[in-house]
């Protein structure tokens, strides 16, 4: 899947939807109708707009964000120092692991940063080892020792 890397042309309705629905999506019989009402839209229009925003990649997801750590699982930030010539091949290898939830290229000697999400804490180390075997590169793990703030909401 290719992700967009440039700003999309968004109209005022789309911005309003993105700003209003980054949390607190209703849990009720007709949640789209309820959310649409607060935005001054019809249920049908909100559904169409959401489908379109997802299709265009403006939204990467729409639904519940699970906190796997509260369910016995684990998240862990990890990084690789990938030789430039092998970058795309290694990215494909790393992304092929379902445990890799996000992966970003960054400007540093450690140039590939990804998040592992696994169903048990032990599986983080196992997955890291499997990625080391596949890539031939050492995986650096940066487990979270403390979380001070997480509020992943940005104004469109």
């Amino acid at each position: 899947m290719t992700e967009a890397h440039t700003p999309a042309a968004l109209d005022a309705t789309e911005r309003a939807i993105i700003n209003a629905l980054q949390g607190d999506f209703p849990i009720c019989d007709r949640p789209y109708a309820q959310a649409a009402a607060t935005l001054g839209l019809s249920e049908e229009e909100l559904l169409e707009r959401l489908g379109d925003l997802l299709l265009r990649g403006v939204l990467t997801r729409f639904g519940p964000m699970f906190q796997i750590e509260r369910m016995g699982g684990a998240f862990c930030l990890a990084a690789l120092a990938v030789p430039e010539a092998r970058f795309n091949a290694i990215a494909a290898q790393v992304n092929a692991f379902p445990q890799v939830a996000h992966n970003y290229r960054r400007e540093h000697a450690l140039n590939m940063w990804f998040v592992l999400a696994t169903e048990s804490a032990d599986a983080i180390a196992d997955t890291a080892r499997a990625i080391e075997m596949a890539s031939g590169l050492p995986v650096f793990l940066f487990p979270k020792e403390r979380e001070y703030f997480v509020e992943m909401k940005l104004r469109a």
Partner: peptide
């Protein structure tokens, strides 16, 4: 779902924008 939200198993329910698409190109 309400119970999972209350227990923190679900952080939130909503949209996840691509940062670049909504104008944040410097992350």
């Amino acid at each position: 779902l309400r119970s999972m939200l209350a227990r923190g198993m679900i952080r939130r329910i909503g949209v996840v924008p691509n940062h670049y698409s909504i104008g944040y190109t410097a992350n």
